[in-house]
């Protein structure tokens, strides 16, 4: 078991694209850590650099106390689950799970035993003799996780672990993944572009953009106090209201706004969107707020909304950084 430390890490692709740009990162031992960001922000490249599949151009990566910057992937004691799971189609589930042991030259009996035990832990028993092509999406994902677990690595890396599952299965797999990580207490880094997934799963989140980390924090910190307007915009199932006012940008989440006799914003209702138990009301001044079901104002009415002072964030208009 070990944490991961990156110091001044850069990964530059041939052609000069700085996918990861002088990045510092510390993942503590046993933590479930999310790398979150839009497509092309460098999160997958960072994960691949930790795995050793991309070589760092500058800086260092350490796992535990070992500097692994120059080590090949196989010597880093990491296990990785790929977005497409990368289960070998010509091997059975058992052979796939035991593959890390086969590479190390373990005897057949040891491999079979490990495959059976690992598979049982991930409720894959009875599927051991199947080929990956005969498994459902969720089973494939668990088989790929089982293979990574069987590698008995110090660090588990997951590239978009839930993105290949359909929406309903995703919730189930999310809970499963978190439970598994807690049981194994294995330092785990996963990449996602889905902020809800990151908030739900992770102990801590690093929000990335253009190869740099914009904010690192617990899901609560990142949700309640986004460090800059980029993070504010990216996190949250409904986009945060960011309204320029004087030298500042006022940021309030739609969930924190409620109608009040007087307050921050006033406008006429232009759109009402049903979100299930709540509705998102958008005013003509561009501000959105969330109301409970059956409480929606009629389109065209004038509404004033306000939020508790602690929930109102102020960003610098020039730099976009949080002022207070």
């Amino acid at each position: 078991m070990a944490g991961i430390t990156a110091r001044g890490l850069s990964t530059v692709y041939p052609g000069g694209v700085r996918a990861v740009d002088e990045l510092d990162l510390e993942v503590t031992d046993g933590e479930l850590f999310a790398l979150l960001g839009p497509s092309g922000c460098g999160k997958t490249t960072l994960l691949r650099t930790i795995a050793g599949l991309e070589s760092a151009s500058e800086g260092t990566v350490s796992i535990g106390s070992r500097d692994v910057t120059r080590l090949p992937p196989g010597d880093r004691r990491v296990a990785m689950v790929f977005q497409d799971y990368a289960l070998f189609p010509h091997m059975t589930v058992a052979e796939n799970i035991a593959y890390p042991l086969k590479v190390r030259g373990a005897a057949r009996s040891v491999r079979d035993e490990t495959a059976a035990r690992t598979a049982a832990g991930l409720s894959l028993d009875g599927l051991l003799e199947r080929r990956p092509g005969q498994l459902s999406g969720g089973q494939q994902q668990r088989a790929a996780l089982a293979r990574a677990v069987a590698a008995s690595a110090e660090v588990l890396l997951l590239d978009e672990p839930l993105s290949n599952l359909d929406a309903r299965l995703r919730l189930e797999a999310r809970t499963f993944l978190k439970k598994l990580q807690r049981e194994l207490a294995l330092t785990t880094v996963f990449v996602t572009h889905d902020q809800a997934e990151a908030l739900a799963l992770a102990d801590r989140i690093a929000v990335m953009d253009a190869g740099r980390i914009r904010q690192i924090g617990t899901p609560r910190e990142v949700f309640q106090r986004p460090a800059d307007t980029f993070v504010a915009n990216f996190i949250g199932s409904t986009p945060m209201n960011l309204v320029p006012r004087d030298a500042e940008i006022i940021g309030v989440r739609p969930e924190y706004l409620a109608p009040a006799p007087s307050g921050l914003f006033t406008g006429t209702v232009s759109i009402v969107e049903n979100l299930g138990v709540t509705s998102l009301v958008t005013l003509d001044c561009g501000v959105g707020y969330v109301v409970p079901e059956d409480d929606e104002p009629a389109v065209g009415t004038t509404v004033t909304v306000d939020a508790p002072p602690a929930r109102v964030l102020r960003y610098d208009r020039e730099t976009g950084l949080l002022v207070r």
Partner: peptide, 28 residues
């Protein structure tokens, strides 16, 4: 798929093992 090879590499397979265990069987 490259991810097959990369997956094998992360588990410590040498280039020869990647070829023999993964690439050739898949391209059989």
């Amino acid at each position: 798929p490259r991810s097959y090879e990369e997956s094998a590499r992360v588990f410590g397979a040498s280039p020869r093992q990647v070829l023999a265990h993964v690439v050739l069987p898949v391209a059989r």
